[in-house]
Amino acid sequence: MHVHVLQHSPHQGPARIADWLTSMGHSHTVFHLDVGELPLRLADGDALIVLDGPEGIADEAERPWLRAERKLIHRALDANKPLLGIGYGARLIAEALGAMVARGTVAETGWHRVDLAPLSPVDLPDTFEAFMWHREVFALPDYALALGRSTASPLQGFTWDDGRVVGLLCHLETTLASVTELLDHQPPPEGSETSPHAQDRAAILDDPRRFDRLAPLLDRLLSQWLASTNSR
């Protein structure tokens, strides 16, 4: 299987997703439409991953590359291809499915507990810890199932079309290296300095084993996501 990956920032890459795809025998190509690369041909890949990126959906006058990216997301939704969005990518998918995307009440950064939703079809523990880096949130799209919630964000993700489409507000793909790069180069989401749900650098990096514990969660999520289409 060949997976297309859309990246929006040099400091918010696929991280452990790239290692997982390679280890499972899948190939992937990373595209950067935000710096002027030509849009990919959706037909040349078997699945699409839309990574995290800048806060705010914004408009196409400010981010002209969004026009092509939104078209790709709509085509993936219509083409029966597996589609996964993380952070900014999940917000774009939620928007494409008609859900509201807006600025959340508070910023949420660092490590926080996620409680799996009672009806979530995703094969994850009932509670788990995930990495957060957002202020923007999204509502649940029509015909979607909620993945789970945290204290600060009542919706941490969703699945749609029997698991073929997955949107995650939280991050399971991060590694110590990717988060260190993020902290070195990316300003925290707006309001982080006053949010009770935002952690500082020291708290985020104080236990490297947290990143190791994300690996089996990511494996379970990605395996189920890609299997959802193969089982049809």
Results as ranks from 00 to 15, higher is better:
4 H>D: 09
6 L>F: 06
21 L>C: 07
31 F>T: 14
35 V>S: 10
37 E>G: 02
37 E>N: 05
38 L>W: 04
39 P>H: 03
43 A>C: 07
43 A>G: 10
46 D>F: 00
53 G>E: 07
55 E>L: 02
61 A>S: 08
61 A>G: 05
65 W>R: 03
73 I>G: 05
75 R>N: 08
77 L>A: 10
90 A>S: 14
92 L>N: 12
95 E>Q: 14
101 V>L: 09
103 R>A: 09
104 G>W: 02
105 T>E: 14
105 T>I: 03
105 T>L: 08
108 E>W: 00
111 W>R: 09
117 A>Q: 04
120 S>I: 04
121 P>F: 01
123 D>S: 15
126 D>I: 02
139 A>W: 09
142 D>E: 15
142 D>I: 11
144 A>V: 03
145 L>D: 05
155 L>C: 03
156 Q>F: 06
157 G>C: 03
159 T>K: 00
167 G>A: 13
170 C>N: 13
173 E>C: 03
185 H>I: 02
189 P>Q: 06
194 T>F: 05
195 S>I: 08
197 H>N: 09
197 H>G: 03
198 A>V: 03
200 D>S: 07
201 R>T: 15
210 R>D: 07
213 R>N: 12
215 A>F: 01
217 L>K: 13
221 L>G: 00
227 A>G: 15
229 T>G: 04
230 N>M: 14
